[in-house]
Design a protein around this nucleic acid. Structure first.
Length: 411
DNA sequence: GAACCTTTGAAGGGT
DNA sequence: ACCCTTCAAAGGTTC
């Protein structure tokens, strides 16, 4: 264990921590850092515990429970790794938002060799060991409900709609949706425009609005999932011209239109179904990552076009709910809408081109793609697609993730 | 000022 | 055994 890793453990024993929760525990004078949480308010311990503890009402007991020092979970290997590497990544990437940093750290973690990871697993094992010695009666369950409160209503409703989709699986209400990739720097303006158009539902926009402008400088892109019901076919076209307000080639360079499914509720659930949200802080190519390790990480650059089109997080996915290959409906009406989509887009692009707003040519995959020139990979099932899918079955859009095709925006 | 976002891993409960 | 949920850290952002 090197010096920095040793300090990882010792740094967790900060002097401001309160005394150990258990008087009988080793009193080295260095309380375990897991005792106090900045989130859970800590009341100073009462001057003296009442001898009539057993006579307390349930309410009082509950209050005293809340006053107990909050013993945190011991850090796992990845948390220890993050703790050590965060500052380094922040310095390298000039990013500060932890959500973005953590994505980078997640990739770096996967790029670590087994030996490198083993160091942190061992460190985490010692952490757990020490933790269990200090708090033998502690259970991870003790902290349940102490950190987070209820999920926000919006997320709850999304979960509910997800459940409804599960229940209604197999039905085809009929709607179309598309996804966009665009520089984060355009997000706020895009949102404003979409709100004006008032024909598009932006799914997961709370995440979108979090996107820091600094991400744009690193070529980081974001995917918007847009939903529109088939009851408004005329309005479906409106939001594409609306995007022409943006003008600069940077937007067109990054803009991608994607039909991700033809089933309305399924699309609605798409954004809420997966833990992987619509926003990708990282482009497929790591902007500020260390060189890929030599052990053949799955994070290596994709070799095939279809692989190159995969969501950036997909190769590294370790959870089944993480990014999945794009699903495209074969429903004729949806194709027609995509055609409308593309035509309007190309029209707007042509206008921008003629007005001299376009800059240098973008990479091939960053160009807007009309339907006729869609890469085959986008119109066919990727290799990892369920092989047992039949025509009568519901399209597997619930497992689909919008693609992030844009690699770098010119900044 | 709480909650969210984002990552992986550990733990606990439910089936 | 498997799946799901929660929580550990971090700090900018949102509500």
């Amino acid at each position: 264990m090197n010096a920095s890793m040793s300090s990882l453990v010792s740094s967790r024993f900060s002097p401001h921590m309160v005394a150990p929760a258990h008087p009988g525990l080793p009193t080295s004078g260095i309380p375990h850092p897991a005792i106090v949480s900045p989130i859970v308010k800590q009341e100073p311990a009462p001057p003296s515990l009442s001898p009539a503890v057993s006579a307390k009402s349930p309410v009082t007991v509950k209050k005293e429970e809340e006053k107990k020092p909050h013993v945190k979970k011991p850090l796992n290997a990845f948390m220890l790794y993050m703790k050590e590497m965060r500052a380094k990544v922040v310095a390298e990437c000039t990013l500060k938002e932890s959500a973005a940093i953590n994505q980078i750290l997640g990739r770096k973690w996967h790029n670590l060799s087994r030996e490198e990871q083993a160091k942190y697993y061992e460190l985490a094992r010692k952490e757990r060991q020490l933790h269990s010695q200090l708090y033998p009666t502690w259970s991870a369950r003790d902290n349940y409900g102490k950190k987070k409160k209820r999920k926000r209503e919006k997320q709850l409703s999304q979960t509910q709609s997800q459940q409804q989709v599960h229940e209604a699986e197999g039905e085809s209400p009929g709607a179309a949706a598309s996804s966009l990739c665009l520089p984060l720097s355009q997000l706020h303006r895009l949102r404003m425009t979409l709100h004006r158009v008032d024909t598009v539902t932006v799914l997961g926009n709370s995440r979108l609005s979090r996107a820091p402008a600094s991400c744009a400088h690193a070529g980081i892109t974001v995917i918007l999932v847009l939903e529109m019901t088939s009851e408004e076919p005329g309005k479906f076209r409106d939001w594409i011209p609306a995007l022409s307000h943006f003008g600069p080639w940077e937007l067109w360079n990054a803009l991608q239109l994607r039909l991700i499914g033809g089933l309305g509720p399924e699309i609605s659930a798409l954004a809420s179904k997966s833990k992987k949200p619509c926003v990708q802080y990282l482009p497929p190519e790591k902007p500020c990552d260390s060189p890929a390790s030599s052990h053949g990480s799955m994070l290596d650059s994709p070799a095939t076009p279809s692989a190159a089109l995969a969501s950036p997080a997909a190769p590294a996915a370790t959870h089944s709910e993480q990014a999945q290959p794009l699903s495209l409906t074969t429903k004729p009406e949806a194709r027609a809408q995509l055609a409308l989509h593309s035509a309007a887009f190309l029209s707007a692009k042509a206008a921008a081109t003629s007005s001299g707003q376009m800059g240098s040519q973008p990479p091939l995959l960053s160009r807007p793609l009309p339907l006729g020139s869609m890469p085959t990979a986008l119109l066919t099932s990727p290799p990892s697609f369920p092989a047992t899918l039949h025509a009568h079955q519901a399209l597997p859009v619930l497992q689909a993730q919008p693609l992030s095709l844009v690699t770098k925006s010119a900044h």
